[in-house]
Design a protein around this nucleic acid. Structure first.
Lengths: 339, 339
DNA sequence: CTGAAAGCGCTAACAT
DNA sequence: ATGTTAGCGCTTTCAG
C-alpha cells in the first residue's frame, strides 16, 4: 500500500521519549551514541524508535550545529555529455562522506546562477560546487561567500579560488606523441569551431609536440562543428586537397568518426595509410566506429570526484586554492595501430 | 577575491535588527511582507539587510513551518540517456515552483535506495521522486511514507501510487502505422535483448498493428544488444536470409543506425527499397545517420516535468494515484519517405 | 506599528 | 545515568 492521502504526523524525539518512558535528552544521547546511557535504557529507546519508525529531524540538528552535510551544485552551462559524468563523480564522492547534494541548473545564465547561489545559502549548504561544461576559465562567482566554493571542469579565473579540471592539453600532447611514436609525420588537424577553447588548446598542444621535432602540420587546421557530418566533410576536403597525410587528429570522437566513415568510403585504409584519433572516449562513438578509435579519456568522473573531495576538505577548513588538473588517459585502439 | 580561509560568520536577522534599530520580529515582518510595518521602517530594514548581505536561514523557517520547499530525487537505476532528460524536465518544473531538489543515485540497489529515502526523510523533504530508467513496473517503495512519492519512467506496480511514464507502446504503434501508410507491408523487427521490456512492448505494438490488417512480420524478430554493431549484424542477417523485406523496425536509434550503415554498404536504397525506423530520437544518432532517421521521441523531458508537477500537486494535498502516460511523438524523416 | 515571548525539534552544558 | 534548561534562527500570536 502506498502513502494515503493524509500523511501521518511526523514522529519526533518526544514521541520516542514518551514511549520509552525517558526524557527527550536521553533519547538524543542514546540515538547519537554521544552520551552515557545505561545499556538497558538504550535498548528500550532503540526499540521505541524502531516501532515508531522515527527519523530524526535533521533541520533541528543543523540549526544547532550549523552544519547541514549538504552541498549545493550548480551546473553552470547546460547539462551535457561533459557535465553529467562530472556530476556523477561528485555524487559518488559525496555519498561516501554521507553528504547530500542540492542541484540547480544554471543554464549558462549568470543571473540565474546568482539566484541559485542565494537559494543555496539560505538553505545553509556547507559548500558549493560550480560545474561548468566549458573547458575554459570562468568568472569567479562572487566576493567572499560564507561557504567554500570549488569549480569543476570550467575553472575560476581567480587563483584564490579552487578548481579541478581535466588536463586536456596534456591529453592532446599524448595523442600527438603517440602518433609520432607510431611513425606518423604528416598530420592534419580537424576540430570544432575555431573560437572554442577546446579547439584552441588541442591545436596548440599538437603543434607544440610537432615543433619539438622541428616540423609542423601537413595541412592547415580545419574548423567546423562538433559533428560527424563535419568530420565527413573535412575528410573529403583533405582527400581532395591531395596533400600527403598519414594521420588526422580530431578534436572530438564525433568528428573522428565522421572522418573514419569518409575515409572508409573512399577506400583509404585506416590505420595502414592514415591514422585517426579522437577525443573524449565516448563509448557510443568509440565502439561503433570502424576501426575502433584511438582517443583520450578526459577522466571526467574523476574530475567530479576530486572536485567534491576538494570541497569537503575546504569545508573542513583545509582549502587549497589553485587549479588542479586531472590526468587524461590515452586509449590506443586500432585506428592508430602500427601498419 | 574569493572567500578567504576563515569564512565570515553568517549574518542573522538579529544583526539586521541591530543595524536598523528595530526588533527581530519587525525584521521578519518587513522581509516576509506578512506583517504591518511602516513604510519608512521597512526601507530601513531592507537597506540594512542589503548592506549586510543578509540571507535568511531557511532551516529555521522550515523548522517552524514544517515545509522545506525541497524534494528528494532518487535515480533508482544508473544515470543514462533515458534518465538524464527526465531529471532535467523535473528540475525545470521544480525551479518554476521555487523548489529545490536533493539528488541521490540509487544505482539499482534497493538497499541503497532505502538508505537514501531515510536520508531524505531526515532532511524533511516535502516529497520524493523516484526516477527509474527501466520502462517497466517496479516495486512500490515502502508502506506509508510521511510524504508523497511519484514515480517517473519506471512506474510503480501498486496502483495506489502515482506514476508518470512514456507511452512508448503507442509510439511503437505510430511507427507501424506510419510504415503501413507509406505503403510498406513486409516488415522485419530488430531490437535489443529479448527479455528487455522495451523489446517486448515494441514488438507487441508492431504486431498488433499488423494483425489489424490481417498479416504479420515478414521475418521473425531479431534480438541482440542495444548497439550499432548489432544493427549491422542484424541487417546482414536479413540480407542473407533473402526474405523479401520493405521495412526494418528497430528498437532503438542506435540499432537503426547500424542497420542503415549495413544497408548502405550493401547498396540497398533507403528509403526506396527498404524503410528503416528507430526509437528515441537521440540527436547524435539521428542527425548523423544517412539518410536521416524516422523515429519516435519519447518526450522524456515532459515525463520529468509532469512527474514533478504531479508531485507538487500531491504535496499540496491533491494526490492523483495511477499511471499517467505521456504521448510520444513520431518524427518522420527521410529513412521512411515515400519512394 | 512595534516588541516581547513562546515554540518548531534537536543538542549539549549543567545539575541532580 | 538521567533530567532540566538554554538556545540554534526564525515566525507568529499577543500586548503594548
Amino acid at each position: 500500500m502506498a502513502h494515503s492521502g493524509s500523511s501521518p504526523r511526523r514522529v519526533t524525539a518526544s514521541d520516542v521519549a514518551a514511549r520509552a518512558g525517558v526524557s527527550i535528552s536521553t533519547v538524543s544521547k542514546a540515538l547519537s551514541g554521544r552520551g552515557a546511557v545505561r545499556h538497558e535504557t538504550r535498548q528500550r529507546i532503540l526499540q521505541a524508535a524502531n516501532e515508531l519508525n522515527y527519523q530524526s529531524n535533521q533541520l533541528a540538528a543543523s540549526l544547532y550545529s550549523g552544519r547541514t552535510d549538504t552541498v549545493g551544485v550548480i551546473m553552470s552551462d547546460r547539462f551535457g555529455r561533459l557535465t553529467v559524468p562530472v556530476l556523477l563523480g561528485a555524487i559518488e564522492a559525496l555519498a561516501e562522506h554521507e553528504i547530500a547534494l542540492v542541484l540547480f541548473d544554471g543554464r549558462g545564465d549568470s543571473i540565474r546562477e546568482q539566484h541559485y547561489i542565494d537559494a543555496l545559502l539560505r538553505r545553509q549548504v556547507d559548500g558549493i560546487l560550480m560545474a561548468g561544461a566549458g573547458l575554459k576559465p570562468r568568472e569567479s562567482v562572487r566576493d567572499s561567500l560564507p561557504v567554500p566554493v570549488v569549480y569543476a571542469l570550467a575553472w575560476s579565473d581567480d587563483d584564490e579560488d579552487s578548481s579541478v579540471t581535466s588536463d586536456d592539453a596534456a591529453g592532446a600532447r599524448d595523442i600527438a606523441r603517440h602518433l609520432l611514436a607510431t611513425g606518423r609525420r604528416k598530420l592534419a588537424f580537424v576540430s570544432g569551431p575555431r573560437q572554442d577553447a577546446a579547439s584552441h588548446v588541442r591545436l596548440a598542444s599538437t603543434e607544440s609536440v610537432l615543433a619539438e621535432q622541428g616540423f609542423g602540420l601537413a595541412h592547415e587546421p580545419l574548423y567546423g562543428e562538433w559533428s560527424e557530418r563535419w568530420g565527413r566533410q573535412a575528410a573529403n576536403q583533405l582527400l581532395h586537397s591531395h596533400v600527403d597525410i598519414d594521420a588526422v587528429v580530431c578534436g572530438s570522437d564525433q568528428i573522428a568518426r565522421g572522418v573514419l566513415e569518409a575515409l572508409r568510403e573512399n577506400e583509404v585504409d585506416v590505420p595502414k595509410q592514415v591514422a585517426v584519433t579522437g577525443f573524449d572516449n565516448w563509448d557510443v562513438m568509440v565502439e561503433a566506429s570502424r576501426p575502433p578509435l584511438t582517443t583520450v579519456d578526459m577522466s571526467l568522473h574523476e574530475v567530479g570526484r576530486q572536485a567534491a573531495e576538494k570541497l569537503v576538505q575546504a569545508m573542513n577548513g583545509r582549502a587549497e586554492p589553485g587549479v588542479q588538473r586531472v590526468d587524461c588517459q590515452l586509449i590506443p585502439r586500432e585506428s592508430t595501430a602500427l601498419a
